[in-house]
Amino acid sequence: MGTPAARQGLDVEIGHRPFSAGNGVFLVSYEKPADAPDAAYRLSLLTYTCNVADSYTSVSYTLDLRGKLTRLRSGGLTGRFSGVLPATATGAGSTVRGTFKVAAPARSRH
């Protein structure tokens, strides 16, 4: 992620890759000041990429971005997100909301 040095970023991909026609994934990106606690993470980018007729297309939910990220005692993460896709000349806008939970990474035993 292209985060400035004074900020720290974390990306979460929600969905399965590779994805077949009609399926997609959300990329949910959070940022916080580098010296701030994890509770300061806020949603900075919300994008949906899908496979339509063997071609990938992405849309960004750029309005009213809201989200929170929390680190669990287990080391995993839980979060929520919402955003609005602006209306275009070819279609109406839409709102998306979601939650997720990411397990802590497995620790290797040496």
Rank of each mutant, 00 (worst) to 15 (best):
S60T: 13
Y56K: 10
D38I: 00
G76L: 09
R73Q: 12
L27Q: 05
S82M: 01
V102T: 09
V59S: 06
L72G: 01
L10N: 08
V12A: 11
L77Q: 04
T78N: 09
D64P: 03
N51P: 02
L45V: 09
R107N: 02
L85A: 00
A104L: 04
R42E: 15
H110M: 01
T78P: 00
D54R: 07
T99C: 06
G22M: 10
R17Y: 12
Y41N: 02
P4H: 13
R42F: 06
S29M: 01
T78H: 06
S55R: 09
N23L: 15
T95F: 09
M1K: 09
V59C: 05
D54G: 06
A103G: 05
Y41H: 06
M1A: 13
P105V: 00
L27W: 02
L63F: 10
G9K: 12
F19N: 13
L46K: 03
L65R: 13
D38M: 05
R73C: 01
E13D: 09
A6T: 15
L65S: 12
S55D: 06
A6V: 12
K101L: 14
G83Y: 02
E13N: 11
L85R: 14
S94H: 13
T47Q: 12
E31W: 04
A34P: 06
H110Y: 04
R109Q: 06
T3F: 13
D38T: 03
L43I: 09
T99Q: 15
D35Q: 14
C50M: 07
P37C: 01
P4D: 12
K101C: 13
Y30C: 01
M1S: 14
T49H: 01
S74Q: 06
G93E: 10
R71I: 01
H110N: 00
A92F: 06
S44M: 05
G24S: 08
A103S: 14
P37W: 00
T70N: 08
T47W: 02
M1E: 14
V12W: 11
L43T: 10
D38V: 05
K68Y: 03
T57Q: 09
R73V: 09
H16W: 08
S20H: 11
R97K: 14
T99W: 11
S20P: 02
A92M: 07
Y30K: 00
R80T: 14
G22N: 07
K101V: 15
K32W: 04
A92Q: 12
T49N: 00
R66N: 13
A87T: 14
D11H: 08
V96R: 05
N23V: 07
M1G: 15
F81L: 00
L72V: 01
A21C: 13
R109E: 07
Y41D: 05
D11F: 07
E13F: 12
I14L: 15
S20C: 04
